[in-house]
C-alpha cells in the first residue's frame, strides 16, 4: 500500500500532469485562459484576488525552499535549524494567511455573486474542492506545528522523498512516518497536479514574464505560421507571393 501511495500514485499524477499539459496546449490553445470574471464583479475581486495570488506566490516560494533545498545546504552556509524554522514559520504563516483569506473571499464571491456563479463550470467546482483541500491542509500543518509544538522535521522526511521522485528513486518509508496531515497534504496535492491540465489552473504556466522584455508593438505577417497543429485556427491559407515557379507550372 505504501508503495502505491508514495511511489506509484505520485508518478501517475505527474505523468497525467505532463502529458495533460502537452495535450491541452496542442489541442485547446483557445481554451487556455484565466477565464477572468472581473467584468461581472470587481469589489470583492480587487481584494480577494491579489491576496490569494500574492499569498500563493509566497507559498510556492516557501515550498521551493523547503522541498527542493536539501537541509545540508542551509546547514553548510551556517543557518541553524532554529533560524530556518522561525523564518519558514513566519513566512509560511503570512503567506498562508493571505492565501486563506483570499481563497475564502473568492469562494464566497463565486457562490454569492450570481453572474460569477453562473460562469462556474463543474470542473471549476471540483478544482476548488481540491485546491481548497490542499491549502487548508497546508495551513493546518503549519498552524498545528505551532499549537502542538511538534518536532516533526519535514526536511528530513518529506523533502528528501519529494526530491527522490525526480531522480526516480523514491523511498516510500520516508513518508510512512510523517504525520497524517502531511501525508494527506502531499496526496491531495498530487491529485491536484493530475487535475491541473484540465482546469483553468493552466493559466499559471502563462505567467507573462516575457512582457518585461518584448517590444511594445508586435508586428506579424498575415502569412506567418506562428502555431501549427490541430488546436489552433491558423489553417487558413497564407499569403504566397507570386513567383516565377508559379508561372512555369
Amino acid at each position: 500500500m505504501s508503495t502505491f501511495l508514495w511511489v506509484i500514485f505520485p508518478y501517475l499524477c505527474l505523468a497525467v500532469f505532463v502529458v495533460g499539459h502537452w495535450w491541452r496546449y496542442k489541442y485547446d490553445k483557445f481554451g487556455w485562459t484565466t477565464r477572468s470574471s472581473q467584468l461581472y464583479e470587481d469589489n470583492l475581486l480587487k481584494w480577494g484576488s491579489p491576496l490569494f495570488h500574492f499569498g500563493m506566490l509566497g507559498v510556492v516560494g516557501g515550498h521551493i525552499i523547503g522541498l527542493l533545498l536539501p537541509k545540508g545546504w542551509t546547514d553548510a552556509i551556517g543557518i541553524s535549524e532554529e533560524t530556518y524554522h522561525a523564518f519558514a514559520l513566519g513566512g509560511g504563516l503570512v503567506a498562508g494567511a493571505m492565501t486563506f483569506v483570499g481563497l475564502v473571499m473568492l469562494i464566497y464571491r463565486r457562490r454569492t455573486v450570481r453572474p460569477v456563479f453562473k460562469a462556474t463550470t463543474p470542473m471549476d467546482k471540483v478544482m476548488y474542492l481540491f485546491l481548497a483541500g490542499v491549502i487548508l491542509l497546508g495551513c493546518w500543518n503549519t498552524v498545528a506545528s505551532v499549537i502542538f509544538d511538534s518536532h516533526f522535521n519535514y526536511r528530513e522526511s518529506v523533502s528528501p522523498w519529494f526530491r527522490q521522485i525526480f531522480w526516480f528513486q523514491p523511498d516510500a518509508s520516508l513518508m510512512t512516518g510523517a504525520p497524517l496531515g502531511f501525508q494527506a497534504h502531499a496526496l491531495l496535492a498530487f491529485a491536484l497536479f493530475a487535475l491541473w491540465p484540465f482546469t483553468r489552473l493552466v493559466h499559471v504556466f502563462s505567467a507573462p514574464v516575457g512582457y518585461l522584455t518584448r517590444p511594445y508593438i508586435v508586428y506579424r505577417s498575415r502569412g506567418s505560421k506562428v502555431q501549427d497543429g490541430l488546436g489552433n485556427r491558423s489553417g487558413s491559407p497564407t499569403w504566397e507571393r507570386p513567383s516565377l515557379d508559379d508561372a512555369k507550372r
Binding site: 483557445f30 485562459t33 477572468s36 493559466h203 502555431q227 485556427r233 491558423s234
Partner: peptide
C-alpha cells in the same frame, strides 16, 4: 485568440 490568456 490562441495566444490571448485573458489578462484584460
Amino acid at each position: 485568440q490562441d495566444k490571448c490568456r485573458g489578462w484584460r
